[in-house]
Write a protein that binds this DNA or RNA. Sequence first.
DNA 1: ACCGGAGCCTGTTAGC
DNA 2: TGCTAACAGGCTCCGG
Length: 272
Amino acid sequence: MPELPEVETVVRALRDPLVGRTFSGFESYWPNQIVVPDDVNQLRDRIRGRTVTAITRRAKYIVMSLDDGAETLIVHLKMTGHLAVVPTDQPVHKHVRNLFHLEDGDDLRFRDVRKFGRIYLVKDPLEILAKLGPEPLEDDFTTDVFTQRIAGRTRVIKPLILDQTIVAGVGNIYADESLFYAKIRPDRHANTLTQSEKDLLWAGIRHSLQNGIDREGASIDSYVKPDGTKGDMQNAVNVFRRTGNPCYDCGTPIERIVLAQRSTHFCPVCQK
DNA sequence: ACCGGAGCCTGTTAGC
DNA sequence: TGCTAACAGGCTCCGG
């Protein structure tokens, strides 16, 4: 499942084959994924002839600037999305839902088994991205900023750090890993955390996300890099999907509970 | 503010 | 073996 590190890996891999390329067409096999504009033909018309001038990441969104910001194409991979530049003469995989033709014989193909992924074409990216919280790996995301953003909150801590308006980009894997790093039980309420626990959680979020980027993502479900190869973060998780297996620190079996309808994994001894 | 549930989806897996 | 039901989960919307 693509979270911040997986999306960052995709963005880095797409830069070389995509920046400087010009769209020449568009085909949709599942238009429900296109949120804006509401008409496929309008998207095709607006995108044709536009050149990708930059690809960046904001939270879990892939942001493609076209003609220096004249238009912005935004893609969210959600659970099973996969984006890659592929030669046009290559057979179209059965899970390709939307396909952007590029000049000079390639396609940008959006594969997505579960069709949860979303596509947006907007004049102003803030139309989609404005509500997001701070980028957790930026220098200005200090422990004081984190403390301030959860101040006064009484919610259970794990759903709180999954809230994209609190801090952007943390998903289920990295939430569990961050809480393990901080030795905090995921079902604690935010207002019960001490300052040193908040500091540790801030560090845990940054550490686990950076580790995920360094390892080019976690190939736990269907996630693979644009070139089809796996990341390495699945080999470095301490708790995620390790239910019943011994904690690497104390040997106690990892437990699984459900919080906010998400499976949650933790060490009942190490995490207080 | 916060929570729970539905909905969006289909491939995989657990259970009978 | 073969079938069905449950499960996976990012995000939004809705009602309480």
